[in-house]
Design a protein around this nucleic acid. Structure first.
Length: 929
RNA sequence: GCCCGGAUGGUGGAAUUGGUAGACACGCAGGACUUAAAAUCCUGUGGCCAUUGCGGCUGUGCGGGUUCAAUUCCCGCUCCGGGUACCA
């Protein structure tokens, strides 16, 4: 009987459902292990073959851990809110909930066919009120907390209120939008409204007027990580800067902890590096520059305080408040014109015109606090309002932007750092600024002669002592804009009273998403929720009309899986204390600066509240590589309906046409399928080579338009789920990106058939014997146990599969069909090919699932060799092999090898300079002459 | 521009701490079985030279270096992929 994967897979998938094989619950007698996949957004296109790559890897690891005695939590769910369903709703009027449910059903169907060990009782959907209840709840908590830098954690806003009552801002160190200073008396004199405005300056979820990334085509704002090169990541629409009142999350309060936490978690270096860059910590100094004939001081941030003697001008960001204060009347018109002009420039233009410097002089002069020189103050959009203080000191000789600006407006460029081993140069001949990270200070007063690091320290010291400035750490990480002007998202648990935001009570949650007549903004330009009838509290106060962004629902889903049905809290302390954190998280790098920052922030906040027991949510994270598409081409002779095979195309004038890869096998075109594909090709003629039509190929993005999308269902129907699982893993290292290439899938399928035939003969009879295993057979088995255990531990699934193949080939050669060998082998293979192994496991007479078997123990005794085939090298080149006893001491080995006649041939009349013997490894003979 | 990662046969890839380069698989070529095909099995397969046998030379993107020994370590470069970008 042949290996009938269709029947086998159907049978065991049903068995697993019937026996609740993958249901898990808290079991204090077993160690826990939590394996998590990044949950998918259920798109209308369904899963393609790239999606399950990570799921298969995590599934193998989950099953492996279970076989090793762990209680494994391995859940799955859906990131169900998102733009595509809403865009579809706008076009068709179909409620996004319906679209989403349909897509989820399709995803589920596809996932089920692959044989995953998910506990579906724990499924979460972010659009489910029982789920977003806790998203809304967390938002309320953030609104009700502020970040205290002394305690280095979030504290209740009541504590801040009490403090203001008692001592105002005196001694307060808190994360804030802007630095405020008032006494207790001043606080008490403030009106309720004023007090609330002040509190928004501290709340971790707060309303503020900010410059946002406005995408007119989508009709909404976007977070920084949702914008790529001035275009929206979804849809590729242009994005512009706009000032709007929005909800924000004070992620920046956690910048330092987010950075430090990276050192405690097992993530890839590249991913950590991306996060470090995104957080962008830079240590520097804040310095105050007095302004001539003015009370105003310009505060600037610099990481290179040592170059202060090289400053020849100051630059303000156009949005800086100082622009109005400093601009001299006679320059006002010019400055206004410039501000007007820059406002019109989109983010996109600012980025593409990097080289072109624009700016305007304000007429004001600042005074260099160290050199006492007067220096002109300019305005230019190359300075960003959002970073540092929105004002800079320009050091044109050593900063390329400042240099370009100085050249454009003909400002002086004095050199203050001389690189090691060079003489001071003539800056008027320079094409660009010169690097100044290393070198010696010149033209810098009391800093002259010092090295750069010394000068930085000395200047900082000087600033602090004289009160001119202070040492300061800046972060690039911005607060996350949390409002979206969309329908299909979580409603905010917020209402407005006299224009001030208030939170719903916790017992009023969840606040369900209302129905609307259209999924479009109102005529007044308000978000879709403004269309909802009765969108007010019981008392009649209007509810917030914005909704939350995509990352809201994905920021704590891993916690909800621990206790998905709890209606009283996000996760019970019992469940959280047992499951703790995610031991292994598998997903793509594309979430490096979005989800993986926000969920770490969210988790740290909940940790501060004592709601979760771990500061970092994801202990180990493995990035799976992207699966690219592999397109196939046919070559049409221009102006005809004739197609020529790949290697003949040079003889004709042809054009390349994409063909659906699903009708190409091993680059050979299925001509009948091609003719049926499109009426245009019905009567196509073919010029073949060797009787076949060979297609060309290229690696491209996997997309419908390239006809290179391969669905897992197709592969499952053709080869079975076990083959798909094996092949996805066999393709190469998990972390590496690679094109999906079905060439080669026959190899793993053949392997599974070979496994089948070790157990079952042609008549379908079990041929397993109870005879005792030989030493040789045991060696094969234990070599495989060792190799596959090591490989699974380090996520090297492709090499694990190779070693299975070697093992099965060896057992075939040995004609081994002994239970003592085959049964442990089956357990090893079960995480990879669960259906086949379950079938054979039961054929062997077992009652329960192979999932509850025990991973075979490795016994090194079986691998001990009495002799070793030493490779013998001459000057590092391997020449022949020599079998010697394994325990022969190196001196004996040397003697033996020199006495060998093959060695003599190679030595001939040359002089033996040295013999290196690495016991058990290699012999190298160094000869000269 | 800056920061990461990568480059090995016709193809995907292996070589875990510097120790036999090319495991395993695809493809290809030849053969066995078969009326035939499919399936299965066997043999060969980096390149060049020699193939009468032994073999020999060369080879991990390029150029140097360290070492008895380098795909692996160091220096310089080329190309490819990813991240990021007026972040002071």
């Amino acid at each position: 009987m042949e290996y009938n994967f269709n029947e086998i897979e159907k049978r065991w998938q049903q068995y697993w459902i019937d026996h609740q094989t993958y249901k898990v619950s808290i079991d204090p007698d077993k160690p826990k292990f939590y394996v998590l996949d990044m949950f998918p957004y259920p798109s209308g296109a369904g899963l393609h073959v790239g999606h399950p790559l990570g799921y298969i890897a995590s599934d193998i690891y989950s099953r492996y851990k279970r076989l090793n005695g762990f209680n494994v939590l391995h859940p799955m769910g859906y990131d169900a809110y998102g733009l595509p369903a809403e865009q579809y709703a706008i076009q068709t009027g179909q409620h996004p909930a319906i679209t989403t449910e349909k897509n989820i059903a399709r995803y589920r169907e596809q996932l089920d066919k692959i044989g995953f060990s998910y506990d579906w009782d724990r499924e979460v959907k972010t659009c489910d009120p029982d789920y977003y209840h806790w998203t809304q709840w967390a938002f309320i908590q953030m609104f009700n907390h502020y970040y205290d830098k002394q305690a280095d954690k979030a504290l209740p806003i009541e504590q801040l209120l009490a403090r203001f009552e008692k001592q105002g801002t005196e001694g307060l160190e808190a994360a804030e939008t802007e630095a405020l200073s008032f006494s207790a008396a001043e606080w008490k004199q403030k009106s309720e409204r004023e007090q609330q405005e002040v509190l928004l300056n501290y709340r971790l979820a707060y309303l503020a007027d900010t410059m946002v990334n406005w995408c007119p085509a989508l009709g909404t704002v976007l977070a920084n990580d949702e914008v790529k090169d001035g275009f929206s990541e979804r849809g590729g629409h242009p994005v512009e800067q706009k000032r709007m009142r929005q909800w924000l999350l004070r992620v920046s309060a956690y910048a330092e902890r987010l950075l430090k936490g990276l050192d405690t978690i097992d993530w890839s270096d590249s991913l950590k590096e991306i996060q470090r860059n995104w957080i962008g910590r830079s240590e520097g100094a804040e310095m105050n520059f007095p302004v001539k004939d003015s009370e105003v001081e310009m505060k600037i941030f610099t990481t290179r305080a040592d170059t202060v003697f090289g400053v020849t001008f100051m630059v303000l960001a156009p949005e800086s408040e100082l622009v109005q204060q400093l601009t001299r009347p006679e320059y006002r018109a010019e400055v206004e014109a410039y501000l007007e002009k820059t406002k019109k420039r989109t983010e996109r233009e600012r980025q593409t015109e990097v080289k072109k410097m624009t700016g305007v002089f304000t007429g004001a002069y600042a005074i260099n606090p160290l050199s006492k020189e007067e220096i002109p103050v300019w305005v230019s959009d190359y300075v960003l309002a959002g970073y540092g203080t929105g004002a800079i000191m320009a050091v044109p000789a050593h900063d390329s932007r400042d240099f370009a600006f100085a050249r454009t407006f003909d400002l002086p460029i004095p050199q203050v750092v001389v690189p090691k081993g060079e003489a001071p140069g003539d800056t008027s001949t320079w094409k660009d600024s010169i690097d100044s990270k290393e070198g010696t200070m010149i033209n810098s007063g009391f800093l002259d002669g010092l090295s750069v690091p010394e000068a930085i320290e000395r200047t900082k010291q000087h600033l602090v002592e004289t009160g001119i400035g202070n040492v300061k750490v800046n972060y690039r990480l911005r607060d996350a804009i949390f409002s979206r002007q969309r329908y299909w998202g979580e409603p905010f648990p917020v209402y407005y009273k006299d224009g001030l935001p208030h939170m719903l009570r916790e017992d009023e949650l969840p606040l369900p998403l209302p129905e609307v007549d259209k999924y479009l903004p109102t005529e007044k330009g308000e978000p879709p929720l403004a269309r909802a009838k009765g969108w007010t509290t019981k008392e009649g106060y209007p509810l917030e009309v914005n909704t939350m962004p995509g990352f809201a629902g994905s920021s704590a889903y891993y916690l909800r899986y621990m206790d998905p049905k709890n209606s009283k809290e996000l996760v019970s302390p019992e469940a959280n204390n047992y499951w703790q954190d995610v031991d292994l998280y598998i997903g793509g790098t594309e979430h490096a600066t979005g989800h993986l920052v926000y969920s770490r922030f969210w988790n740290k906040f909940l940790f501060d509240l004592g709601k979760v027991c771990k500061d970092e949510p994801f202990k180990k994270l493995v990035n799976q590589g992207m699966i690219q598409g592999r397109s196939n081409f046919v070559y049409r002779v221009k102006g005809s309906n004739t197609f020529v095979s790949l290697n003949l195309k040079e003889q004709y004038d042809t054009m390349e046409i994409h063909v659906d890869v699903n009708m190409v096998h091993n680059d050979v075109l299925d001509i009948e399928a091609f003719r049926a594909w499109n009426p245009e090709y019905k009567d196509a003629e073919f010029v073949l080579e060797d009787g076949k039509y060979l297609c060309g190929w290229a690696v491209e993005k996997m997309s419908k338009s390239m006809f290179n999308v391969v669905n897992p269902d197709t592969i499952v129907a053709q080869y079975g789920a076990d083959t798909l699982r094996l092949y996805e893993m066999f393709l190469g290292p998990l972390e590496q990106s690679k094109p999906w290439d079905t060439n080669g899938i026959d190899g793993v399928h053949k392997f599974l058939r070979k496994v089948w035939r070790l157990f079952v003969d042609k008549e379908g009879q079990l041929v397993v014997s109870d005879a005792q295993a030989t030493a040789e057979e045991l060696k094969v088995l234990h070599r495989t146990i060792k190799k596959t255990s090591d490989d699974v531990e380090r996520f090297s699934f492709n090499t694990a599969i190779s070693s299975f193949m070697i093992c099965v080939n060896d057992l075939n050669d040995l004609k081994c069909n002994k239970r003592a060998i085959l049964e442990p082998l089956l357990v090893l293979l079960a995480p990879f090919a669960p259906h086949l192994c379950e079938e054979l496991w039961h054929k062997l007479g077992h009652e329960g699932s192979i999932c509850d078997a025990q991973w075979p123990a490795f016994n090194a005794d079986h691998l001990v060799e009495s002799s070793i085939q030493y490779p013998v090298s001459f000057n590092g080149k391997m020449r022949f092999k020599l079998e010697l006893p394994a325990d022969m001491p190196p001196a004996e080995v040397e003697k033996a090898v020199l006495a060998d006649e093959q060695a003599q041939k190679w030595i001939a009349d040359k002089e033996v300079k040295k013999v290196i013997v690495v016991p058990g490894k290699i012999i190298n003979i160094v000869v000269a002459g």
